[in-house]
Design a protein around this nucleic acid. Structure first.
Lengths: 339, 339
DNA sequence: ACTTGCGGTGTTATCGATAACATAAAGCGA
DNA sequence: TCGCTTTATGTTATCGATAACACCGCAAGT
């Protein structure tokens, strides 16, 4: 139990001071090559495992980057987190992940918990936060990045895109193809702000052409998914049989909608068009394949990781710099589910 | 910068000793209710955020549970991790997540990195590890749980199921329906051991009936997904046109296979049967819906979380107990993609 | 030859909270 | 009233690594 070897033990075994062992474990510090090699070998043979918890206290560098996402159950966020983790790992940084459940209250609690771990930076998915969350982050004096959104009033750095703008691409494509009777599926009032932004993009794009936007959103705060997309489609079909197409908050909803149409004996795209959002794998596979918007989830992760690596460069404390706002590309991908 | 308030500052502001503040921040310790309330209020007004990194060093309790999963890009693992996080959060424990990329070497490196953070327990997805990984874990003297598998030679605790056994359910169902010409899609040689186990289950179930098992696996170490499932289906169809059904390593592959069949003008299940594995959301939505095996991903996470909470109960060091081996239920779900 | 500089190493104090122990005040039965 | 437990709080030393500084010896510059 108490026999876990410490740096001191390694030092004694190697006949050097603990300080030298400490240096040997860091790539940058100045130790002669053979001393380092010998120390590392001895450490390994003793079964010594570096203790980051102690290092952290004195050096004030935890090597953590805290990241909040609404939910793990979303391939797009998972891609972003994976890419970010990879980039950060190259710089010796660890991602500390937390889930907000699409809820600003939970986010506030989460942020406080994460800050207790003294992360060197914090990444928030989305741009909507409670005032206390913003206060906590300000106090923490660490770099903050908001992703997957372009907030009107950003906290500091931003790596994202306009969900409303991206959704507009879809609507305009359908309008150009002559479809004017369109319904929107998804985008709850609270919680999923990205979904709401997409809905807003749909509504404003329709209104810009003087068309009526039909919308069906879930009443709860969590985003619609496949099953609900199908249910919503059935409802829409009976409430507005004249609809020519369904614009969906995500590919998952679109897939649910597609299958529901097929079950009703409706052909897609001949009888009804269906468009998704996010370019999930499913949209490239389904039959027919889904028209969607690619939002480069991985690239958001990579860019955020690279930005943080730059800000947290080894030379001492975080570099002060002007807020960065990187807008990543979104691209309409037209496939067979729309004319 | 240096003006971040510390416990001492809160103590002075409240006119008590730092120790009392420390106790006020822990639910269990003995402080009078009004003192605690006053301290917490003052702490809040000063913008004090508890420093877990310092607490950790002295108390030797990090509150971390390290978890390794092959990849975030899998809704099943995501469910497990989410459920586990929820349960552990109730006990003040934080999940520290790492990815092995379906690679034992990466896992070894990852485990070492995670151990540096001094987690109180470690959860490994799968039962295949390098010797050094096993040595590291033994040295660490913390509870270890292997999940999503029932290893022949477990390290310590297990919460999982037999992938081979579960796959056998699918095969036997198809055989009972009179289909004897079956092909298997997925399950690479290395890397994805759960996939390989499922493949093994398929092969042995076929051989038990004296039938020839046709198998098509990816050459690389990462699991097959939708796109590849479709490609593999096309290959199988031309190599073995007599096949009556495709048994797939996952619902994702099955969905790829289903769509590929449909593109070829083949009706499922009339012309070809398709079965998946994992009961992903897609299998309940697709048209036709997919026959699959439910493996209760969330329950694995919940049970693992509960087990760890029990082992790490607040009263001092980890409780010593005999290794637990919980086998969770798997259930065949017959839907329309098979006769 | 003498200084200057630098690579390599050791010494000491310290990061911020808490375990362990000590202590003061309050409750309580006989 | 006394001794005893219980509750609320304070004191001191410590967790394990590292920042900051000091130091030594050797090579290069003048």
């Amino acid at each position: 139990m108490g026999n876990t070897p410490k740096m001191k033990d390694v030092a004694e075994a190697a006949g050097v001071s603990p300080m030298t062992v400490s240096r040997a474990f860091r790539k940058d510090a100045s130790v002669s090559d053979d001393t380092r090699a010998r120390i590392l070998e001895i450490a390994q043979s003793l079964g010594y495992v570096f203790d980051a918890t102690a290092s952290t206290l004195r050096s004030k560098r935890t090597g953590f980057v805290a990241v909040t996402i609404p939910s793990l159950n979303n391939a797009n966020f998972a891609d972003t987190v994976t890419a970010m983790s990879e980039v950060l790992a190259e710089h010796g940084l660890q991602v500390l992940l937390g889930y907000t459940n699409y809820n600003m209250r939970d986010e506030e609690q989460l942020v406080e918990n994460l800050l207790r771990r003294r992360p060197e930076a914090l990444v928030l998915t989305g741009g909507n936060h409670t005032q206390r969350t913003r206060d906590l982050l300000k106090q923490a004096e660490i770099p903050v990045v908001e992703i997957w959104d372009v907030p009107v009033n950003p906290i500091e750095h931003v790596v994202g895109f306009s969900n409303a703008q991206a959704m507009k691409l879809v609507v305009e494509h359908l309008l150009n193809k002559g479809l004017t009777q369109l319904g929107f599926l998804g985008g709850a009032a609270s919680g999923d702000t990205r979904g709401s932004d997409r809905k807003a993009g749909f509504v404003s794009a329709m209104q810009a052409k003087g068309l009526e936007p039909h919308v069906l959103s879930p009443s709860h705060g969590t985003p619609m998914s496949m099953q609900e997309g199908g249910d919503a489609t059935i409802q829409m079909l009976s409430a507005y049989p004249q609809l020519q197409g369904f614009v969906c908050v995500s590919d998952l909803v679109a897939f649910g909608s597609l299958c529901a149409c097929q079950r009703q004996g409706l052909k897609v795209p001949q009888d009804r068009a269906v468009a998704g959002f996010g370019n999930f794998e499913i949209s490239a596979t389904s039959h027919p394949r889904l028209t969607t918007v690619d939002v480069s989830s991985r690239i958001i992760g990579e860019k955020t990781g690279a930005l943080l690596a730059r800000l947290l460069v080894r030379l001492g404390r975080p570099v002060n710099s002007d807020p960065v706002c990187e807008v990543v590309q979104t691209e309409l991908i037209v496939r067979q589910s729309t004319p």
